[in-house]
Design a protein around this nucleic acid. Structure first.
Length: 262
DNA sequence: ATGGCACGCATGGCGTGA
């Protein structure tokens, strides 16, 4: 990117091996400084790191077979990386990766979806947000430059999902999970896309199972770029790039991008 | 109200996703 801009993006790839060409093409076209990936669905020994390196993006990653998996690729390699929680609970390293470049930190998360309101994974999801808030309280101060990116599996408000009145019992929209997300956001984050685009119907996820979802505007805004105060003060613009969602062999999510004054 | 599509895999059906 231009030297005056710090461009950050996030994308749930739904298998990095299936989406490698899409991602590399997107990197070449949009040249972010940092791209956070979720649902890479691959063990570390099979992660296509060489392809990222060859494209000018050193990458750090942690994954598992078939499910989950997170990665951060960037124009320069980070000088510090944390894989997973360090609070004594499940590390969940294939859902949380945190990279620092000097005083700038990027936290990339794939928050558990929850499966069903009465499933243990939903309770785990609510607890996951609490653990993340504790991590932030422990490791960061809101006057530092932190960016929290990822697939949060929560639509914050009615304008963040189609037919919100039908979704009140959904694990990604129930009042309890929305409150859990807000409690973690309350650490001091600004939702940078919302800061620039207040209109409803701006979504980052469209279910595969409805082939007309994108055309009908039936989606969810569940992917976020969240900035700490000093970073939010430098926000220039943010946008959702829907073009990759229209391609053949696409992910069910698409790219979310933000530009900051460097 | 229900199902639908795509992914990976000890693959020919299943678990998972949201």
């Amino acid at each position: 990117m231009k030297s005056s801009t710090w461009r950050v993006a996030t994308f749930n790839a739904n298998s990095i091996r299936s989406r490698l060409a899409v991602v590399l093409e997107w990197l070449a076209a949009h040249v972010p400084d940092v791209l956070c990936l979720q649902e890479t669905k691959v063990t570390d020994d099979l992660f296509p790191a060489a392809a990222f390196e060859a494209a000018g993006y050193p990458v750090v990653y942690r994954g598992q077979k078939s499910y989950n998996g997170v990665a951060i690729c960037a124009r320069t390699a980070p000088d510090r990386v944390q894989y997973g929680f360090d609070d004594g609970g499940p590390a969940d390293a294939s859902r949380l990766i945190c990279a620092s470049w000097g005083a700038v930190t990027v936290l990339n998360t794939y928050v558990p979806q929850g499966r069903a309101l009465d499933h243990e994974m939903y309770a785990y999801k609510l607890e996951w947000f609490r653990r993340l808030r504790a991590l932030l309280d422990r490791q960061a101060r809101p006057d530092a430059a932190w960016l929290w990116a990822g697939d949060m599996n929560v639509a914050r408000e009615p304008r963040d999902v189609h037919h919100p009145e039908r979704m009140t019992q959904h694990v990604c929209y129930h009042a309890d999970v929305r409150r859990a997300f807000e409690d973690t956001l309350g650490w001091g984050f600004t939702d940078v896309f919302r800061e620039r685009h207040p209109e409803a119907g701006q979504y980052t996820f469209y279910d595969y199972r409805d082939r007309e979802a994108l055309a009908k505007g039936h989606g969810w805004r569940i992917d976020y770029l969240l900035a700490s105060p000093p970073l939010a003060a430098r926000l220039r613009d943010a946008f959702i790039d829907l073009a990759p969602r229209r391609q053949p062999k696409c992910s069910d999510h698409t790219f979310l991008v933000a530009d900051f004054d460097a």
